[in-house]
Design a protein around this nucleic acid. Structure first.
Lengths: 242, 242
DNA sequence: TAGGTATTTCTTGGTCCAACAAATAGATTG
DNA sequence: CAATCTATTTGTTGGACCAAGAAATACCTA
């Protein structure tokens, strides 16, 4: 078994701990000892240099690690603030080697979308507000404009992301970010049919209307139908090319 | 809507892309275009500097990111070799005990689990077979044995994964794999209460029974209750420490 | 004079450069 | 074959400058 070398998450003071890893550990300790929470600020880079007797480049490399792990957000002039994007990072890491574009992946992703979008109807009709509806309308209006296949798919995707964003659930948004490539492929497949764009537009419109009326059943029916049509087109396409 | 700033995994050439992010992307492109595989070596830092017209610090910060993501392993004199530790990195993300997972992360994940597990009731009672039930029973029986907190949480997690595995949906299983560290933490929190293990056992048993009887409503009710209890314990815990 | 606006200053992260230290693969030498 | 030497490569440091933006200041108008 390969021993974990160069690990920046190295536990307590290892022998061959590099200066950068030491600074990472010290910043972690600082966060813990100072009881820093999400939203709090870290000292400036130069202050950290002085505090840890490290050069600025070393501190910066340590910060890069913390940024990569989704623990801090660094902005010029603002400084480093503590965040917790670890879930997003985990999904991003995972997205590299998962979700290959097999037929089963497509149907699995569609099923997952169905569970999330249709299943959250109750919460959606409860939480949806005026600006949500406005933005959904805007996105859908954009869909009606002339776009090529890829642009239209992006807009279609944006519509569904905006829909689930009403839930205010970061985990679900992360899931959608991971599935994005697959979802786009599904949509592109479906859009090869000529009438697709107008169909999508009117189906989306029906979803929005049901949402505006806070009609859960209509919302579920229309959204489920919408998703199933996409799946059906896709199946036909796949069978034709298989 | 908040735009993803400072993201080192930023997709194709954004406007405000930093030099480091650009190098990260270029190195990834290099790996892809050169068909480099695990075990192959990257050019030296200085060669990358020349190739990308970037300073050595910039290249090094880019390397730190790639290291943090488990994509390369850098050793003095050896240079950078391509590895694939992304999966283990994803899990290590949550080994930062210095900072507690944010409360919202917990509730988001619980809500997502609810949508998936409770929402798929109809499919579950339809697809479940004898061996599914047997294995769920076996896992739950294991839960009744004496285990420490971590072991019990692992078993609890395995139960729910086995449950959704009935759906035969790889995308959902991937989602559970990524969320595993968070789910485990949720369960560990809940298990601080003394009676938790027996409660979990009987609640699981009720879920299995409903599933065996193909009673969708009972299944949903019991599973929802089960998940909500976990959430409630967690909320109490969080409020106590807040 | 008061209030708002334009300007200036100064802090801070982003990038680059040059140098040296430490480690070590590969060549050299005994 | 083994010890040693050398050259290369990463690790670290200190310094410098830039651009962006926040804070302080000066200015202008009503």
């Amino acid at each position: 078994m390969e021993v974990e070398t160069g690990g920046s998450l190295m536990r307590s003071g290892q022998a061959g701990e590099s200066a950068v890893d030491a600074v990472v550990q010290q910043i972690r300790d600082l966060i813990a000892s100072s009881r820093l929470k999400v939203g709090d600020s870290l000292p400036t880079e130069r202050e950290l240099c002085a505090q840890f007797n490290a050069s600025r480049n070393t501190v910066r490399e340590a910060m890069r690690i913390l940024k990569a792990y989704g623990l801090v957000d660094v902005r010029p002039k603002i400084g480093a603030t503590i965040i917790d994007n670890r879930m997003s990072r985990a999904f991003e890491l995972f997205s590299f080697n998962t979700m290959e574009l097999s037929r089963k992946s497509f149907s699995d992703v569609q099923a997952l979308r169905g569970l999330l979008e249709v299943g959250s109807a109750e919460i959606l009709v409860d939480k949806v507000n005026r600006s949500d509806l406005n933005e959904l309308n805007d996105i859908n209006a954009e869909l009606a404009a002339n776009h090529d296949l890829n642009e239209a798919s992006e807009i279609d995707y944006a519509f569904h992301v905006r829909l689930v964003s009403i839930l205010d659930n970061a985990a679900i948004l992360d899931v959608y970010a991971v599935m994005k490539p697959v979802i786009l492929r599904i949509m592109q497949k479906g859009k090869t049919r000529r009438t697709f764009m107008t169909e999508t537009f009117s189906e989306h419109q029906g979803v929005i209307d049901a949402l505006a009326a806070r009609d859960r059943l209509a919302f579920q029916y229309r959204l489920r139908t919408h998703l199933m049509f996409g799946a059906r087109h896709f199946s036909q396409e796949m069978e034709a090319t298989a």
